[in-house]
């Protein structure tokens, strides 16, 4: 009788331990597999932000206009001159880092914060900016306009 009960308790104990072992093992598998599965799920932004950005087709960019393009985590201003040239500059004003815009009425790149003006070569021509805007490289392949970091 005694023996039997002892065997029983040992049995139940074993079962309990095995349960923990099995459950723990499964939980552990979960803890390992979850991050891996999440890692393999394609992220929202599925490409590395890189040294070049495709802007669009040349015919879609009006002459005598400018637009802000997100280049990585920095804004870039893409300007098309009245003559049809396409140029790109960092859109960060060299004075206090506001974002510059294209002003059709001046035919210049203009910073709203302190009225800094840059010509269409990025040179600071009036107002407080201490130096020109950094220029980026623009390539046009067929109709496709792309901006590249200058290396």
């Amino acid at each position: 009788m005694m023996e039997k009960s002892e065997a029983q308790t040992s049995d139940s104990k074993r079962d309990f331990l095995k349960l923990i072992l099995g459950g723990g093992f499964l939980a552990w598998i979960g803890a390992v597999l979850y991050p891996i599965a999440a890692y393999l799920k394609p992220p929202k932004q599925n490409e590395v932000e890189v040294s070049s950005v495709k802007v669009g087709l040349l015919k879609d960019i009006e002459k005598d206009s400018g637009q802000i393009v997100k280049f990585g985590n920095k804004p870039v201003i893409l300007v098309r001159t009245a003559a049809g040239d396409v140029r790109a500059f960092s859109a960060v004003c060299t004075h206090l880092e506001c974002t510059v815009t294209y002003r059709k009425d001046f035919g210049m790149i203009w910073c709203a914060c302190h009225n800094g003006k840059y010509d269409l070569n990025g040179r600071n021509v009036s107002g407080p900016p201490p130096r020109p805007l950094d220029e980026l490289r623009v390539t046009i392949q067929g109709e496709e306009v792309s901006i590249f970091k200058k290396s």
């Binding site: 999440a38 890692y39 932004q45 590395v48 890189v50």
Partner: peptide, 13 residues
């Protein structure tokens, strides 16, 4: 940039 991407954009990267 790709490692930066792994570290910031990929879940559990």
């Amino acid at each position: 940039e790709s490692i930066q991407f792994i570290m910031s954009k990929v879940a559990f990267g």
